[in-house]
Design a protein around this nucleic acid. Sequence first.
DNA 1: GCCCTGACTTTTT
DNA 2: GAAAAAGCCAGGG
Length: 98
Amino acid sequence: MDEIFKQQVWEITKLVPKGRVTSYGAIAKAVGYPNHSRHVGKAMGGCPEGVPAHRVISSSGSLSVPEFQIKLENEGIIIENFKVKNFKKLFWDPLLEL
DNA sequence: GCCCTGACTTTTT
DNA sequence: GAAAAAGCCAGGG
């Protein structure tokens, strides 16, 4: 994947409002790669400080990284059994902001 | 250029 | 609604 791709992914991720979440697929679309949701995840693996990667989860509302539960709860997001409660309400689509 | 892998998604049971 | 399978594309060996 190109560095540009990562950069864009991180930019979008940083735009996610506090207390909200989004999905890999949504970000993938936002950066212009609708079917590269996986690579969004890979880009997250090398995300720098200041990027709220914990707000990026799968489209089902389940946490890819259980560890993020703490941070999410800290932002006011309710986690239940490794899944985001009220996911539909908390879901933030990057495309709406572009 | 083939094969495996991946913080995924969608469809089908 | 949860679990399994198929689909998707780019990178690395």
